[in-house]
Amino acid sequence: MKQKTSVNIRETGIRTIRLESSAIGSLEQYINADFERVVELMAACTGRVVITGIGKSAIIAQKIVATFNSTGTPALFMHAADAIHGDLGMITPDDVVVCISKSGESPEIKVLVPLVRNLGNKLVAIVGKSDSYLAQSAHFVLNTYVPQEACPNNLAPTSSTTAQMVMGDALAVCLIEMKGFTAEDFARFHPGGTLGKKLYLKVGDLSRLHQVPKVSLGSSLREVIVEISSKMLGVTGVVDDQGRLRGIITDGDLRRMLEKNMNAAGVSAADIMSSNPKTIGADELAVNALDMMRNNDITQLLVMKGDQYHGIIHLHDLIREGII
């Protein structure tokens, strides 16, 4: 391999992006009647969408399968080479089969296609050549033709695989809208990930992990310090005799009081608290708590259930859960 020493790296990077952007833009002309029928077919499918391919197209197929599964369309990946050695058995009568190929002429594809047709399943081709064996054999064709790969030798799949992936995304987004797939549905399929947590994790889920720091209006300075220290949240709520929230005291409030050289002997919680503290409902999403903290440049919020004070949510809780 001969190494070039005069490559303009920035120029090459920009050219690659422009070529692939152009390839994506040209796909608009192929969002046609076949595309509409394929979306309707997948939306009505009572089985799974089985997506297959070979080489780089197989990798794109896996990505599309992952997107479908996470957005409410059950899907399976089947490698074209493995399919003709037993994996064909994963296809059930109710499945829709999608075959991805740039040329539509790969030997494995030519063996696989008639087998799928014999099973009686609908076959969708995502293919770059409309006159290929795959395109001519499929029930529906989604054209992903690109005039040029970004590869300088016009060989390595670059623009073509980008086009395949975008076509898969277009299908997925149409299915999301047709099925009325919501953010709550998305969270059900992503319970362990950061995206899912942003959609389902509630403030109360985090605040209940802590003890509730609380003092009364008449509590002494010593009692305030002990409560803040023992609960280890750097803050305490202040309540009246009826248990209603009246204010907040942070460790910062204590430092500012000492800086003013106040006579600590007669100081009560009511003297140093901040009235009208920032609060959030226990049923609010944790990500909303993060927004409030950022907007107000604070690190904790008092948590309420109705008009009752129920605890603290701290910035560290959100960091620990990966919300940030």
Rank of each mutant, 00 (worst) to 15 (best):
L206Y: 07
L206R: 05
L206F: 07
L206T: 10
R208N: 12
R208F: 09
R208G: 04
L209D: 05
H210A: 12
H210T: 12
Q211D: 14
Q211H: 13
Q211R: 15
Q211N: 13
Q211C: 12
Q211Y: 04
V212Q: 11
P213E: 06
P213Y: 00
P213T: 10
K214E: 11
K214M: 14
K214L: 13
V215Y: 04
V215Q: 02
S216I: 07
S216T: 13
S216M: 09
S216N: 10
S216Y: 10
S216P: 02
L217S: 04
L217Y: 01
L217T: 14
G218I: 07
G218S: 14
G218F: 03
G218Q: 13
S219T: 10
S219K: 03
S220L: 00
S220T: 15
S220D: 00
S220K: 01
L221E: 01
R222W: 01
R222G: 04
R222F: 12
R222P: 00
R222D: 09
E223L: 03
V224M: 02
V224I: 12
V224C: 08
I225L: 14
I225V: 14
V226H: 11
V226A: 08
V226W: 00
V226L: 14
E227D: 10
I228C: 04
I228A: 09
S229P: 07
S229N: 14
S230Y: 13
M232E: 15
M232G: 09
M232F: 06
M232H: 15
L233T: 12
L233D: 07
G234C: 11
G234H: 09
G234V: 10
V235G: 14
V235H: 08
V235C: 15
T236D: 07
T236K: 09
T236M: 02
T236A: 13
G237D: 03
G237P: 03
G237R: 02
G237C: 02
G237A: 15
G237N: 04
V238M: 03
V238L: 03
V238N: 01
V239C: 14
V239L: 08
D240P: 08
D240M: 05
D241W: 00
D241K: 08
Q242A: 11
Q242S: 12
Q242R: 05
G243C: 03
G243Q: 03
G243V: 08
G243F: 05
R244P: 00
L245T: 05
L245G: 06
R246D: 01
G247Q: 07
G247F: 02
I248Y: 04
I248N: 05
I248F: 06
I248S: 06
I249M: 02
I249N: 00
T250L: 00
T250P: 06
T250I: 08
T250V: 07
D251A: 10
G252Q: 08
G252K: 09
D253Y: 09
D253W: 02
D253N: 14
D253K: 06
L254Q: 07
L254Y: 01
L254I: 15
R255V: 11
R255F: 08
R255S: 09
R256K: 07
R256G: 08
R256Q: 11
R256V: 05
M257I: 11
M257H: 13
M257G: 06
M257S: 14
M257L: 15
L258S: 13
L258I: 13
L258E: 12
L258G: 07
E259S: 13
E259Q: 12
E259G: 04
E259I: 11
E259T: 11
